[in-house]
Simulated assay, not measured.
Amino acid sequence: METKTIYKCLIVDDETLARILIRTHLLQIPELEVVQECSSAIEADLYLKTHQVDLLFLDIQMQHLSGIDFLKSLENPPKVIFTTAYSEFALDGYELNVVDYLLKPITFERFYKAAHKALELLNLENDNKEAAEATFIDKSIVIKSSHQHIKILLTDILFIEGLHKYVKIVTEKKNYTTLIPLSAMEEELSNQLFYRCHRSFIVNLSKVELIDGNQAIIGTHKIPISKLNKQEFLAKLGKKIG
């Protein structure tokens, strides 16, 4: 039996009853899970800095920062469904490429239609991502080390450390050293599997178990994370470890 993907939802609305209604509607759709509710865009912004979500139910008219301005401020926004009592903002929603625009009071019939439109898009993206990642399962690199040419599967690599003109490739079973700059190694690796989290380190995203302060933990290894790269690193890890 095929397991359905569960997508994470964030509800942002300054009205308690509105949040309750959306949460109640979402309980009827098993593929969508509410992971957090926020009463303001500012609160939602803080949450999204450290958490990954797939679908955002976003009110437009809120104090201090409107839903429209908030959405414009996000570099990599999730899928968004606007929820509002004002129909005049519909054009803004389409210009921002939101999934749908729901007018309050929101009936379940209308909500269901919007939610399934979002699910279709999320499932399509998820299928495309899995297909792209699958192409790298048997991919490998060949390095020269100790007068030998050695084939290493990308999926076996835990992380790579730059050592001046050399790099050390760390796998679960063995370490390899080869004469190549870290920047050149970075160009050879898939951006979908690897991320340069520090000027001296590239990590395999699928191997990261947790983030402890400014360190990525892979087994017994602790890899430093640059402060400038931490937010992007967390965003890339979201769907893999979130």
Rank of each mutant, 00 (worst) to 15 (best):
E2W: 08
T3P: 09
T5V: 15
I6C: 13
Y7S: 06
K8N: 14
C9Y: 02
L10S: 06
D13M: 06
E15T: 14
T16F: 14
L17D: 04
A18T: 06
R19E: 01
L21A: 12
R23D: 02
T24V: 07
T24M: 01
L26C: 07
I29T: 03
P30C: 09
E31M: 13
L32V: 11
L32D: 04
Q36F: 12
E37F: 02
S40K: 11
A44V: 09
D45V: 10
L46K: 13
K49W: 00
V53S: 06
V53K: 03
F57G: 06
F57S: 03
I60C: 01
M62D: 04
S66R: 07
I68M: 08
K72C: 13
L74E: 07
L74F: 06
E75T: 15
E75W: 00
V80Y: 04
I81S: 03
T83D: 00
S87R: 08
E88L: 09
E88K: 11
A90V: 14
L91C: 11
G93C: 12
N97A: 15
N97I: 09
N97K: 15
V98N: 04
V98I: 09
V99S: 04
V99G: 06
K104L: 08
I106T: 05
F111Y: 00
Y112F: 13
K113N: 00
A114F: 00
A114K: 03
A115F: 09
A118K: 02
A118R: 05
L122F: 06
N123E: 14
L124R: 13
D127F: 11
N128S: 11
K129D: 11
A132G: 08
E133M: 15
A134M: 13
T135S: 12
F136E: 11
I137T: 12
D138I: 08
D138K: 15
D138H: 14
K139T: 05
V142K: 10
V142E: 09
K144D: 07
S146I: 11
S146A: 13
H147P: 00
H147N: 10
I150G: 02
L153K: 13
L153H: 09
L154I: 05
T155L: 07
T155R: 02
L158A: 02
I160A: 05
E161R: 12
V167L: 09
I169P: 05
T171R: 00
E172F: 05
K173N: 13
K173F: 10
K174S: 06
K174Y: 00
N175H: 04
N175W: 03
T177C: 09
T178G: 01
T178E: 06
I180M: 14
P181I: 07
A184S: 14
E186A: 13
E188V: 10
L189Y: 03
Q192H: 09
F194T: 05
F201I: 03
N204E: 02
N204Y: 02
K207F: 04
K207E: 03
V208L: 01
V208P: 02
I211Y: 04
G213H: 05
I217A: 02
G219A: 05
H221R: 05
P224C: 07
I225F: 04
S226W: 07
S226V: 10
K227L: 13
K230P: 06
K230F: 07
K230R: 15
Q231K: 14
F233Y: 07
F233G: 03
A235C: 08
G238M: 10
G238Q: 01
G242T: 12
